[in-house]
């Protein structure tokens, strides 16, 4: 059964792209969760709808169209929070609502919902193209490079931003880079689980990892493993049981979260 499952080209592409995207989302999610910015993924995913709607209207590639839209919107979230001194979650709510309503308006003008749009809303991992899989690979490479090269800046800014700034760390640049790369990850991941569920790939694996890890490096490894594991298990189960892959991936993540919680309550012993 597994051999047959893995023999299809579209399954291979979906699994590879899904693994790259899930690992990227989980690794970036660790920093976003710790900075209490995890809902930014939710806001960005709603803004994706505008990009997808414009792409469907103009017959452009939804991924390429969504990247600039989501990047500009995420910058908007940051500027709203900084310049107008409003809470980050409120800024996310404002931009998210704007993105969703503009997307729905364009969709209505374009003649309402169609099957293409539904595919983006709920995910269609098995329709991932080769070029999209390559893009997901490049994204993961960029995330891993940034993580290793700027490891100290990232951990320092996430742990204590004011102190990091007094060390000469450019916290503003670190935050902007983190949010920009997350925007790209969100766009590349929407084919995996769908616009509605992307934020779960950013939030749940890191939270599960944070519950059971003893070191920060462990958190990063585990979050990536939870993300990738959920994609493989979810896609396989959806193939066997003929159920939606996006929702299955997220349910697998929720089961991991429940397991991590139980382990953190009864399994962890502080040996140091």
């Amino acid at each position: 059964m597994i051999g047959e499952f893995l023999s299809y080209g579209f399954v291979q592409r979906g699994l590879i792209a899904g693994s790259f995207a899930a690992a990227s989302c989980a690794l970036l999610g660790v920093f976003l969760v710790l900075k209490r910015l995890s809902l930014i993924g939710d806001g960005m995913s709603h803004v994706c709808l505008t990009g997808v709607a414009v792409a469907l209207l103009t017959s452009a590639n939804p991924v390429y169209m969504s990247v600039p839209v989501v990047m500009v919107s995420s910058l908007g979230i940051m500027k709203l929070a900084q310049k107008f001194k409003i809470y980050g979650d409120a800024a996310i709510g404002i931009v998210s609502a704007a993105g969703l309503s503009v997307g729905l308006m364009i969709t209505a003008f374009a003649g309402g919902f169609n099957t293409d749009l539904l595919g983006y809303l709920f995910g269609s991992i098995l329709t991932v193209t080769f070029s999209e899989a390559v893009l997901c690979g490049l994204l993961l490479a960029a995330v891993l490079f940034g993580l290793v090269y700027f490891y100290r800046d990232l951990t320092s800014v996430c742990f204590d931003e004011p102190f990091a700034r007094t060390r000469g760390v450019r916290a503003g640049t670190v935050n902007t880079a983190l949010v920009m790369v997350t925007s790209i990850a969100v766009v590349l991941a929407f084919k995996v689980v769908g616009i509605f569920l992307i934020s779960a790939l950013i939030i749940i694996p890191p939270v599960s990892a944070l519950l059971v890890s003893r070191t920060f490096r462990q958190v990063l490894w585990l979050a990536a493993c939870f993300g990738v594991g959920s994609v493989w298990t979810g896609v396989y189960l959806s193939f066997v049981l003929n159920i939606p892959s996006g929702a299955t991936i997220i349910l697998i993540n929720l089961i991991c979260l429940a397991g991590s919680y139980i382990y953190s309550k009864w399994g962890i012993k502080d040996v140091r």
Partner: peptide, 21 residues
């Protein structure tokens, strides 16, 4: 939030920033 970082790693953050992990 339970940031899983040791006391030693926290002190390390006080040293001048350097590239690499």
């Amino acid at each position: 939030s339970r940031f899983p970082i040791s006391a030693e790693e926290v002190v390390l953050m006080g040293l001048p920033p350097r590239r690499g992990a």
